[in-house]
Amino acid sequence: MMNSRNLPFLATLAIFLIAYALCTMQFPAMFSTRVMGNLLTDNAFLGIAAVGMTFVILSGGIDLSVGSVIAFTSVFVAVLVGKLGVHPLVAFGLVLIMSTAFGAGMGLMIRFLGIPPFVVTLAGMFFARGAAYLISTESVPISHPLLDAIQGFYLRIPGGGRLSALAMLMLVVFAAAIIIAGRTRFGANVYALGGNQQSAELMGVPAGKTTVEIYALSGFLSGLSGLAYTLYTSSGYSLATVGIELDAIAAVVIGGTLLTGGTGLVAGTFLGILIQGLIQTYIVFDGTLSSWWTKIVIGILLFVFIALQRGIIWYSNLRMSRGGGKGALGGVA
């Protein structure tokens, strides 16, 4: 049956397909696996971070620390590998543990000190950015045979496109997240918390544990996103990815997830990433437009989607109040 909760997702899907069709009508070359492959690679780090953001927003929270954690991760790994000669895998493991612990720490503060997520993660944002500056304010180049191998690895897809290691990583993360959100008790608890925390707790959802896990997951994915960014740019730079968390939030919202929590799909966030990538690609193809048009179009899309979500809520409330009780009684055998 068609749920009204899938409506924003379907609207996003429709918008993406129409936009893509319009783009290929103007630039037929855009309809190719090569363009798609590049789009996925270019947005891999954003996509990975947006997955974490999706869980946070579904639970009714927000994570502003994402961009700073990405920058910290990238500069930390670059210094470890590029300057101190640590093996990349060791550095990767270390940095993922750190970012996960950082997220879990923020979750603990949100839950047990009762501070709003906005404030805690705002503090986290400054903290992680500051720590990144402390390590280095220079762009630190990074090179290692293993990293070169990862960067050079790709799968050929029919039509001349290449699916890079980064693109594959993002797809794996999305696939795993779709399963976690839709098919695990943890996922159900995330939705429950976002729906109504008090009710969820009365129904036995372990709110504290789940909150910590959600922010730990977002921290982990921010770290992973930082690794992807490091591989993507072959460097670590503490001034990078400023405000990227806002792009991630935009992708989540455009993907149909309610900012108030409780409703949305991880797959929607994937569409949100694709739409952002599509706009950038169009601007590249056009060649005359300023790249700032990306921001303007995303701004417009956000307005449209928030209005759409309001409209859906308004409509379903209207339907419920208009003898929804009587109508539903018909379902009783």
């Binding site: 749920n3 909760r5 399963i179 098919r183 695990t184 008790r185 996922g187 159900a188 608890n189 939705y191 429950a192 976002g194 729906g195 109504n196 008090q198 009710s199 969820a200 009365l202 129904m203 036995g204 959802v205 409780g262 409703t263």
Partner: peptide, 29 residues
Amino acid sequence: VYQEVNLLENLTVAENLFLGRQPRRFGMV
């Protein structure tokens, strides 16, 4: 069963009935 604070409207009927005690197979709901 309370009057107001109760189940979760954003979940399905089945999810509400089995929240926290979903039947699982191979760790998946």
